[in-house]
Simulated assay, not measured.
Amino acid sequence: MSPWADGNDREAIEQVLQQTGYPVIVKPRRSSGSRSVSKVEDQVSLDKALKNTHEPFVQAYLDDNGGEYSVGVFRCDEFEESIAFKREIHPINSGCSWFAELDQVPEVTQYAMQVARSIGAMGSINVQLRLTREGPRLLEVNPRFSSLVAARAASGFMDAEWSILNALGINISSPQQPYKPIKFHRFLHEVVDYGDGYMGLSRWSPHLYSNVNDE
């Protein structure tokens, strides 16, 4: 994991800066969609970000030489699975994935699974990471369904459904591999590309795509 510090611990912050220098990332300890995340380049910007961020958390800036990934991990008694999407987030006002493509890089999926095992996670979690020059590095772990839950389902990774079945005590069959390769794009409505052009899925928006057979 990249160097980090509690935003209220000045000594720990200085240790991070000594290790990595600027820039660093300041963000709330609890948030979603990259809200209130700041990339700071100097001491003045750092002080301002710490003052304006609730429960601040300071993290070393990670290069994205190999891209940023959102990895869905599901673990239950019957099996454990992971699925990786290389993603781009909205450049202006959202931390949600606005473009993503299935990219099952072994070192990425294995790293995410190691993270899930190390924290004892069961059920569905989302591991966000960057593939840096030194290999995968953790950004954050979200113990919830991420904004790519629908894209994962379109590929055959049904973690929302598995979570419901697991909560009801119903045995879950191990999913079929490999997962369907797709590209996902978010506009006013989400669309996917299975290789023959983008289309909407009727099971997502039946009132818009009732004539599309996507089963």
Score class of each variant (00 low, 15 high):
Q104R: 15
D47L: 12
V26N: 02
R29F: 05
E80T: 05
F99E: 01
E68N: 09
E88D: 14
P91E: 13
N93T: 10
P56R: 02
I83C: 10
Q43R: 15
E68S: 10
I89A: 08
V44W: 02
Q104E: 15
G33N: 08
V24G: 03
Q110T: 11
I92L: 13
L46E: 00
V105K: 13
Y111E: 11
K51V: 06
T53N: 07
S36R: 15
S70Q: 07
H54V: 12
K51S: 07
S97G: 13
S36F: 10
D47P: 03
Q110W: 02
A100P: 01
F79R: 06
P23R: 12
N93L: 10
S31P: 00
Q59H: 03
K48E: 12
R87L: 11
K27C: 08
V24K: 01
Q110L: 11
I25S: 13
Q104W: 05
Q104A: 13
Y61S: 10
R75H: 09
D47S: 12
N93W: 11
Y69P: 05
D42K: 01
L46S: 09
D77P: 02
Q110A: 09
V37E: 06
E68I: 00
G67S: 08
K27F: 08
K27M: 04
V105L: 12
Y69T: 08
H54Q: 13
G95M: 14
Y61Q: 11
V108D: 07
S38W: 14
N52R: 15
R75Q: 03
G72E: 08
F85M: 15
R29Y: 04
S38P: 03
Q59G: 05
D47E: 15
V24M: 03
C96V: 14
D77S: 15
R75G: 00
P28Q: 06
S38N: 15
P23L: 03
S45P: 00
K48T: 10
G72R: 00
P28Y: 13
S94R: 04
L50V: 03
D77F: 02
V58K: 10
D64C: 07
I25N: 07
Q59M: 12
S34Y: 07
L50R: 05
V71Y: 04
F74D: 00
K86M: 11
N52S: 14
P91G: 14
K86R: 13
F99G: 06
S94K: 02
V73D: 00
G67P: 00
W98N: 14
E78C: 04
A49M: 08
P91D: 13
V37L: 15
T53Y: 06
N52L: 13
E81I: 03
W98G: 00
Q59F: 02
Y111D: 06
S45F: 02
G66K: 08
V40I: 04
G72T: 01
L102D: 06
G33K: 11
N93R: 10
